[in-house]
Design a protein around this nucleic acid. Sequence first.
DNA 1: GTTGCAATAT
DNA 2: GATATTGCAA
Length: 570
Amino acid sequence: MVCSADDFGVWKDFPKGLRVLLLDEDTESAAEIGTKLEAMDYIVSSYHNEKDAMEAILGKIESYHVAIVEVTTISVHGNFTFLQVAKDLPTIVISNAYCFNTMMNCIALGAAEFLQKPLSDDKLRNIWQHVVHKAFSAGENAISKSLEPIEETASCTIRLPPDSKLPKIVIPCVSDDKYPAPSTPQLSKGRRLEKNEDLEDQPECSDSDYAAEAKEVIEMPNFGISDAKSVDITCNDMAVAEHSETPTSNPMDPVVKEKLDSTENSNPDDFAPSAENDEFEGEDPKRRKSFLHDTSCLNSFEGRRRKMKVDWTPDLHKRFVRAVEQLGVDQAIPSKILELMKVEGLTRHNIASHLQKFRMHRRHILPKDGDKRWQVPREFQQKGYMQKPIMAFTPYHSSNSAPPSNAYTIWPHPSYHLPHVQIWGHSGMPSWHLPQGNWQWKTSSEVHADTWGYPVLPNYGYSHFYMPTQGPTMSCIGFDSLDDKAKLFEGFYDLCPDEEIINEVVKEAMSKPWLPLPLGLKPPSIDTVLAELQRKGIHSIPPSPTTRLDGRRPPCFPAVLVIYMLWIFF
DNA sequence: GTTGCAATAT
DNA sequence: GATATTGCAA
């Protein structure tokens, strides 16, 4: 439902008259706070021990709109009985010191906010927000209930118009704390942790041990997928932040900490735990980050209602592919893949989704007729086979007019590097991560890693062989017969001892004469081709487009080269 | 309960 | 538009 701020309009001088239960053992502090609150027209009932306060609310909790309780008063025995009893009462916990664990416990048990003394006037003045927030969050019925008349404040009755429409300010009455109360993160509505639940086991910081030096690790409650993470908390680092009230961006806040980690990459283990991290060795540590992303800007508590989005990093996808290959593409099902991946936090649904995309990708690319030419030979898929790149191909570009003696690479130059480029044999990308069959490279003039973690090349079809343009050279023109085409591959036999592979490559190249030469060979220059064609008696060449309307080069060879290619192959 | 596809959300 | 999540039928 949607509630309106106008709904509170009938409360004259709201929040004047809100009843506040104040619980503070420190009489001096209590008096000071009480005086301030009363000066702000709140009606204060002050108590100095938990027992009295409990008696005050038992059976008549509706007599109060909001409670302010001092932490040591309610946690003297290590429990927070008051918070549990006063579940329906917005409760602000106050403390002389700041301790994350205590704060977390209180919030987890339903506290609306955790404030550090001394309380500023602004904070006190605005405690009414928690009342409103609770009312909004709880919905229409709760609004009238939580703000129902109290004897002394009968004039403060709030009634919802039976058909209140046309609100000037519309606030969605979300049930998920989309609009949380100020300052302090809260658990989702209605999810107060019961005592003995998750946080119960957490180390607590009493006033005496706020400065405890022990480094504690808090395992966050089970927030779905986010439970793959833990928050490293050093109480000592944050203890006693004088004069700082509720820290809105405390560096130790789970989310902020999380972001720091990912930013600084100081926690490689943030990545899913792996029994064998061999494949990550030598990898840029920046990429060894968590693959889990909260989809909102709020903290991990959000995870309780919204699933963490899985970022399928190349590494994660690498694991996925390995699992799929291990099972066989046909037998790979989410549950088994999940089992093989051994990635904590990943769900079967995540796998299923990725598998769906994986299959769609394959389906879209694999020819319907099952053309085996495009199937990567089995040995190509085997680990270790392609540890070194075998051949190279250079996408067509304007430099094709360069002399045919220009260099084309067989092995990547060690210093070759482009941002985001993964070069087989250098990137750490295992051979089994090579694209199977004919992964469709994105048609792009840029070379970068695509979503699947593979190098991206212009879509010339020769997806298996990619090398930068450096290295040994070869010539590729002047064939008078089909056999002469073998000249194309002269030299490769010396460099690549596996003739079988060469044959595969040759077959593939010859089956696609309209594609640029795949074998690291530079296309002949136009002048050379023209001369060669003229030598063969071809004197008239249709013009080829040099640019497109968008100003980019056409994604094809100039006509002269196409003709030449067709001619030499057929 | 799992899977795979389609719809929906981001 | 691409990708992830959710819903739902088999």
